[in-house]
Design a protein around this nucleic acid. Structure first.
Lengths: 344, 344
DNA sequence: AATTGGCACTCAGGCGATAAGAGTGCTAAG
DNA sequence: CTTAGCACTCTTATCGCCTGAGTGCCAATT
């Protein structure tokens, strides 16, 4: 919310400048603005306006005698106030819908496909994240003996998401006892959200009427480990070549940072979660994204619904991105995705 | 197996040259070899030898009037015939053992830790791959109803590895029937390897005495999907910064190729599988690795055992790597890993 | 016959000067 | 308030020069 009052001309010039810079990735000069965009004034006048914009911190020059480049502040203004959202063509809509509905219906695969289609249509780095597990309602819990001293804990959530975690048990356990324990766990935990379970599990098993007390103790102790989303496994990333070929990544240092970011997925997860507190399409510009070393990048994200839970999808690319188009793409994709995941 | 007969001096010089190049990453000249390695002859003599080596295709010059660089052929000879394996220090052994045995015991986490410790100790890209599922013996199969029209198929293998796949069912199914079906599946499939199951499943369920026939049909039809390892999810990669900072990756193009490789994990999986047909530590040099665009890289890998199944771990780095040290590291790590995974 | 010193030759990489081009800021006039 | 004109700044590319590293070969030496 930078409080700026721009005159009509200043808005016009800023709009043209951002538009041009997004297309060319080169500093934009007054002459280019005057000839390519019919602003009805001469380059000299535009130069004056540009000086004003520079004083307001909306544009800058990489060096004294170069054109202007928009700052992050002005991207914000552009996205919030100036930009016209560019609707999708029917062809684009069809492509997204087709690629999302074809193929297997397991939620994980659908998310991977979302990620792929986002990266293909947007020509940026596509991201998708599985629904936030903590908000899901537990429908069923299962304990499956695996090998001699292990139990597989299977937790199924209403949205169709399933997580399984292997739990170590000290001694060999009686299968009947395991079943009995599973029964009481289900009885007391089904219908709660995983978040509630984590918070209240210790209280809920103060008294244990039947089932294996040792096993239940072990379970309550490792509940957090079982129910907490290991969210970096829920994250899909695709289309890295799309953005590495952009001019902002011609510097090897930049590329290295990108590689690090991709490896430590946790940072992306955090940023996506931070953006997900808003409804609908969110544009996170540059430093706002807090992507650590990799600034100069923006995200366009949206939440989607899967039953009672929500997840996040979006695209990541250089700050200089076609927000107007990307917002439509992400918006539409998230809506299709919600529809697919909810009609089941 | 390039058939070369090298004289004692040629071996000596080649050894020194490779050693020097591995350390400096720069073309090695005759003078440097004469002064740093006491070969007892003058630079001029070494030059003659170098000419001979060049004719044999063992070294080359990036341009006239530069020092020599070893070719992939000569790395092969070096690894197979010349190199002395460098044993690990106690400190290194301790570090590997400590980091592998600490923490959670779930197989997936152990593999991730293997990967991390490999990358840290070797200063290369560490890789680890879960045991090959197809060779595992099925111990238990479970069908867990999830939501309205889904079943979670849980397949547990002797090594402790578990895979779960969501299966879509058309109609709502009776829980009793599901249990009955699971029973007969277990009865007929337990004890077989997953590979055998894939091959023979259609024959095994020609006659179905009880259980839900529709469900069994669905199951046999999707058996391949259920039991085939989606191996690129079983692959861990860590330590990319270790190798991106090496001089061979100063070229942005190289970096881009690396990023692509990391994204399409399938290629790495294939290469690792190809190397895994041999027992013990395998060195795969340059083009042998078939890492697509990213040649100029080598892998040092080893299989490890987990019960009846085997998996692969190793390191990937530029062809110019310290094979002598890396072979020890990978060998030791795989042995420790086998011990951990087998004593259970 | 193998080894060595000497020497001319080649080539990459760094440095500085020069030229071209893009774009600005300022001033003065419309 | 707008605009044309102009001097000024700064980047980028190109050329030529030089230096240093390293070779290949030949003739001398052991």
């Amino acid at each position: 919310m930078p409080k700026v009052d721009l005159s009509a001309r200043e808005l016009q010039v800023l709009n043209a400048l951002i538009d041009c810079y997004i297309k060319t990735a080169e500093p934009v000069g007054s002459r280019k603005l005057a000839t390519k965009y019919n602003l009805g004034v001469s380059p000299a006048t535009i130069r004056n306006t540009l000086q004003d914009l520079e004083e307001m911190g909306l544009v800058y020059q990489p060096h004294t005698s170069a054109g202007r480049i928009p700052t992050e502040v002005s991207y914000r203004i552009y996205v919030d106030n100036i930009m016209q959202i560019r609707p999708l063509t029917n062809k684009e809509k069809a492509q997204i819908a087709r690629e999302l509905t074809s193929g297997n219906k397991a939620i994980d695969q659908i998310l991977e496909q979302s990620c792929r289609v986002l990266s293909e249509v947007s020509m940026q780095l596509g991201v998708s994240m599985a629904p936030r597990f903590t908000e899901g309602i537990l429908t069923h819990l299962d304990l499956v003996p695996v090998g001699e001293n292990r139990l597989l804990v299977v937790a199924a959530v209403k949205s169709g998401l399933v997580r399984s975690v292997v739990m170590e048990v000290d001694s060999v356990v009686n299968p009947k006892m395991v079943q009995e324990t599973a029964d009481i766990l289900n009885e007391r935990l089904s219908g709660l959200t995983l978040g509630q379970i984590i918070d209240t599990i210790h209280d809920r098993f103060r008294d244990v009427s039947y089932g294996d007390p040792k096993l239940i103790k072990l379970f309550t102790e490792s509940a957090e480990n079982i129910f907490t989303p290991q969210t970096d496994k829920d994250l899909h990333l695709m289309g890295t070549p799309n953005i590495t070929s952009q001019p902002e990544f011609k510097d090897p240092k930049r590329l290295q940072e990108l590689i690090s970011l991709i490896e430590e997925r946790q940072k992306i997860v955090s940023s996506l979660n931070a953006a997900a507190i808003y409804e609908g399409v969110v544009v996170t510009i540059g430093k706002e994204a807090n992507l650590g070393m990799l600034d100069g990048c923006s995200m366009v994200t949206s939440t989607y619904r899967a039953g009672k839970t929500t997840g996040t999808i979006g695209v990541i690319g250089p700050t200089r991105m076609e927000y107007s188009k990307l917002m439509s793409i992400v918006d539409y994709t998230s809506k299709v995705l919600s529809r697919i995941l909810s009609k089941e």
